[in-house]
Design a protein around this nucleic acid. Structure first.
Length: 555
RNA sequence: GCGCCCGUAGCUCAGUUGGAUAGAGCAUUUGCCUUCUAAGCAAAGGGUCACUGGUUCGAUUCCAGUCGGGCGCACCA
């Protein structure tokens, strides 16, 4: 690869340069070698002269000129066949113009590696547990969960592609008061269904899905539940509702192309006595104390605003207790990095969780908590009002049905998770130029069409020097930048970076397509362009796959 | 009051973690289908990067402060 050669060349030249200057570079010294976007800046550029200016106390252009000389000498010594020329521009950037053949080498790599193109061992040795959605099974998934599902699942795929050992997990919060309330709500709906007088508990779940569930329950059990005590019946309703709703959730996720490696039930923690053991561990370490009849966690020792109650005076645990035990259990299973996606209502929770992980003896950097902001649906330019409490909300299922899976996933992914998302239903539904997801898929379909029309297989042994048009060079550069884009999405845990990259890649292809024909009478050129088109197809397909978006052969 | 996020084109947002002339999409205006998919391409207009200082070869990016917006601050889950 051309970039590898350049890295080596610069490294060697730097050694020579510092040697002649008698200069010791500081340990953190770094410079950037980047693929340029502007063709007038060459193919690659390095800012090393700027970076050394402060250390050498010399003007950047002076350093650049001196360094360029050494580069030239070293380049000759290495008998390079990669670099066409090197020039200083923009003050003290050193721009590299590559020979067409070496620039295009990446096309052959991409097509040969096919589904493996872009993969890396960036995350080697990291064992990551990714937790997302984790919705309480008290109702169908909403669009808020949908965004987490889309982002989490894409990140899961990206982490794997970049060499992380990754598992995904759904935390089933089935132990608490909300579940009891759900059981009582269903119990009430059940009796109502039997024409009995019953009222929903205060703050009970009002959604229509519970009425449907009650109807199903009646058809299965008739009026047999009435023979049980109030408590038994509500208890049965609780587990029945939980099971049924989880079934719906799994189906929704599956249809949304989201599969979890594990569903982890909170109740497991109690069965294994994990909460108790965890509290004992923390007590031994001196992180807990009793005050006014409650048990407190000294989270302020790890930067939290105030200490947190972990067991109430009533003897009940707060939500924090099982959660700490859960995170401990995650680490116990051998993961050295935990990533949690949480809803915005858990904002104040981050410090507590981080503090507790530190108290357990882990590094704060081993846990990443990302808040996934809410989305607002817009219809006809107006926000769609929603209220979970009143049972008025748009479910993920409804959204999928209305706008389709591809567009839904893309819209959820295309923004940073921490920024509020405006989801324009009308735009997402339009099968037109305004819809960004079609822009990507259309590029893929166009290439597929060309390959069908070519009447010949793509060959990797072609004359790459024929690819010298500006649109061609640009496309090649973008294709070669794909592995880097993946690593960045992975490193920052932000799938939107991949979505942005793919949009740019598609743009490069569309521009190339509009300017030049792939198939022509010139056989040599046709072969070269077929390879280019196929490499673009491979890259687009691999990227879309990681976003969980389909890659149509025709549209 | 404290903490977190945000402030970039009329609107929605990028800006490669300090680099070259700040970019896309939508919207507006105008061109391009007898040739591989026009769900596409080309061109035009549109900016005090909220404001003020600081750090340096260089700041939309980092730091401090000010203004403005969103969210979170329970012995709730």
């Amino acid at each position: 690869m051309a970039k590898t050669y350049l890295q080596e060349l610069i490294r060697k030249s730097l050694k020579v340069y510092t040697g002649t200057k008698g200069l010791e570079l500081p340990p953190g010294f770094a410079y950037d070698l980047v693929v340029t976007r502007d063709p007038s800046h060459g193919d690659l550029a390095v800012n090393i002269a700027f970076k050394m200016a402060g250390i050498l106390r010399q003007k950047p252009p002076v350093i650049a000129a001196e360094f360029l000389q050494i580069l030239e000498t070293e380049n000759d010594r290495l008998q390079n066949s990669v670099i066409e020329r090197m020039v200083i521009a923009g003050g003290a950037f050193i721009n590299f113009y590559l020979k067409k053949a070496s620039l295009g080498q990446v096309l052959e790599d991409a097509v040969r590696q096919d589904r493996d193109y872009g993969k890396s061992d960036f995350g080697k040795g990291k064992k990551v547990l990714l937790e997302y959605v984790s919705a309480n099974p008290t109702g169908p998934l909403t669009i808020a969960h949908g965004r987490q599902a889309a982002v989490g699942d894409s990140l899961y795929r990206i982490l794997k592609a970049t060499g992380h050992e990754t598992d995904s997990e759904y935390y089933l919060n089935d132990g608490g008061r909300q579940m009891n309330l759900l059981g009582k709500s269903l119990w009430a709906r059940y009796r109502q269904e039997l024409q009995l007088d019953a009222e929903l508990p205060e703050d009970g779940y009002q959604g229509a899905y519970l009425t449907d569930l009650a109807r199903k329950l009646v058809s299965e059990k008739k009026d047999s539940l009435l023979k049980q005590t109030e408590e038994q019946a509500a208890d049965f309703c609780r587990s029945y509702a939980c099971q049924e709703i989880m079934e719906t959730i799994r189906r929704d996720l599956h249809d949304f192309r989201v599969e979890f490696d594990h569903y982890f039930s909170e109740q497991t923690l109690y069965k294994k006595n994990s909460v108790q053991k965890c509290l004992e561990f923390l007590t031994d370490k001196g992180h807990l104390y009793e005050q006014e009849g409650a048990l407190w966690f000294r989270s302020t020792a790890f930067g939290d605003d105030k200490d947190r109650v972990i067991r109430k005076t009533t003897g009940e645990y707060t939500y924090l207790a099982p959660d700490i035990a859960y995170h401990r259990y995650k680490f116990d299973r051998g993961y050295n990095k935990l990533v949690d996606f949480l809803g915005p209502d858990h904002h104040g929770y981050i410090n507590r969780i981080k503090a507790s992980c530190q108290a357990l003896g882990y590094d704060a950097g081993q846990i990443e908590i990302r808040i996934v902001q809410l989305s607002t649906l817009f219809r006809n330019g107006q926000p769609v009002r929603m209220s979970t409490r009143a049972g008025e909300f748009v479910t993920l299922r409804e959204l999928m049905d209305e706008v389709g899976i591809d567009a839904t996933r893309f819209f959820f992914i295309m923004r940073k998770v921490e920024s509020h998302l405006d989801f324009d239903l009308d735009l997402a539904k339009q099968k037109s130029q305004e819809n960004p997801v079609y822009y990507l898929q259309y590029a893929h379909a166009r290439i597929a069409s060309i390959l069908r029309n070519a009447g010949r297989a793509v060959e990797t042994d072609v004359n790459l020097e024929r690819l010298c048009e500006e649109e061609e060079t640009n496309l090649i550069k973008f294709i070669s930048d794909y592995p880097k884009a993946l690593v960045q999405a992975s490193e920052f845990l932000e799938p939107y970076r991949l979505a942005d990259y793919l949009r740019d890649l598609a743009m490069c292809f569309h521009k190339f397509y509009a300017a030049h024909r792939v198939l022509s009478d010139d056989l040599e050129l046709t072969k070269a362009r077929l390879l280019l088109a196929d490499a673009a197809r491979v890259t687009l397909r691999n990227g879309l796959e990681l976003l969980g978006i389909s890659q149509p052969e025709s549209m």
